[in-house]
Computed example of a mutant assay.
Amino acid sequence: MTEITLKPINKAEHAEDALDLAERAADYVTLEIGRAPDMDYINEFFEAVPPGLTTDNLYAFAVMQETAMLGMVCVAEGYELPTDWWIGLMLLDPAFRGRGTGRAVLHLLRKRARRAGATMLKLSVLEANPRAVTFWTREGFVPHRYAPATPESDGHNRWVLKHQL
């Protein structure tokens, strides 16, 4: 497999490419939000900020293999704790799932997080996405807490997982 890289991306220059990727990965997007991806979904990818942070704390990356965008990742630095990196989304083209792409991306994220002084990776995974739960736990993430759906939430039960760096 050709080397996987993470390329920083931004809304102004890369929204159309991000939408194209989200449309290829519509199976996950539809599971998550109950409809096909659109530009609102992409805007949220680039702009959704956890409590207490600003967009300055967000890092968006395209997962690249040569010139092909295989996925995208968004990370919030400093959520929940100052030395945490929160993986808000890792979305991969279905054609590249189960082929080591996710593992390669996670390896690159770990390296970047360590260089930035992070000591913990955290994320939430939809309980309705058992393949993702299996992936993350196989990669060394352990349960941090269970987050059941509430009347104010999007209706998904989630597992919050953590991984010590």
Rank of each mutant, 00 (worst) to 15 (best):
T134P: 03
L31W: 11
A12C: 08
G34N: 04
M64A: 06
H156E: 00
Y79A: 05
R138N: 05
A104P: 03
L126V: 10
P148C: 11
P151N: 04
G117S: 06
A26L: 10
M120N: 08
D93V: 14
G140D: 02
A12N: 07
L21V: 09
E16L: 12
A147M: 15
R115F: 10
L108W: 09
G100R: 08
W159T: 06
T119C: 07
V75I: 15
T83P: 05
P94C: 09
L92E: 00
G102M: 11
T101R: 00
V75L: 14
R114G: 02
A113N: 03
M90R: 02
M72V: 09
M64Q: 01
V73K: 02
T54A: 13
T119H: 06
P82L: 14
P50W: 08
R131K: 10
A116Y: 08
R99Y: 09
T67E: 03
R103E: 00
A104I: 11
A76D: 01
A76G: 04
A104T: 07
T101G: 00
R110D: 03
D40C: 10
T137L: 09
D154G: 11
E66W: 05
V63M: 06
R158I: 12
R112E: 03
T119R: 08
A68H: 03
Q164T: 15
T54C: 13
M90G: 04
A128N: 07
R112K: 10
L165S: 03
G155Q: 04
L126K: 01
V160W: 08
L109I: 15
E13C: 12
E23T: 15
T5S: 12
R145E: 02
E32N: 05
R158C: 06
R115I: 13
R158P: 03
Q65I: 11
A118L: 11
R145C: 09
P94S: 05
E66K: 04
V133H: 02
L126S: 02
W136G: 02
L165P: 02
A95F: 06
L53R: 05
V125F: 10
L91D: 01
A18D: 01
L106P: 09
Y79L: 08
P148V: 13
F61P: 04
A62K: 10
E16R: 08
L106R: 08
R35V: 11
D84E: 05
T83G: 06
C74L: 09
A12I: 12
A147G: 03
P82I: 14
T2F: 08
D93Y: 14
L121E: 02
I87H: 00
P50I: 13
H156N: 01
K7W: 01
A12F: 12
G102H: 07
G71C: 00
A104Q: 06
G100M: 09
A48M: 14
D154N: 09
L121P: 02
A15L: 12
T2E: 00
Y41V: 15
T134N: 07
E23G: 10
L126P: 00
L165G: 01
E32C: 10
L161F: 14
R110P: 05
A62C: 13
R131A: 11
M39N: 04
R158T: 05
R114L: 12
H144L: 15
V29K: 06
L123I: 10
I42Q: 00
L70M: 07
F96I: 04
A60H: 06
L21C: 04
D27L: 15
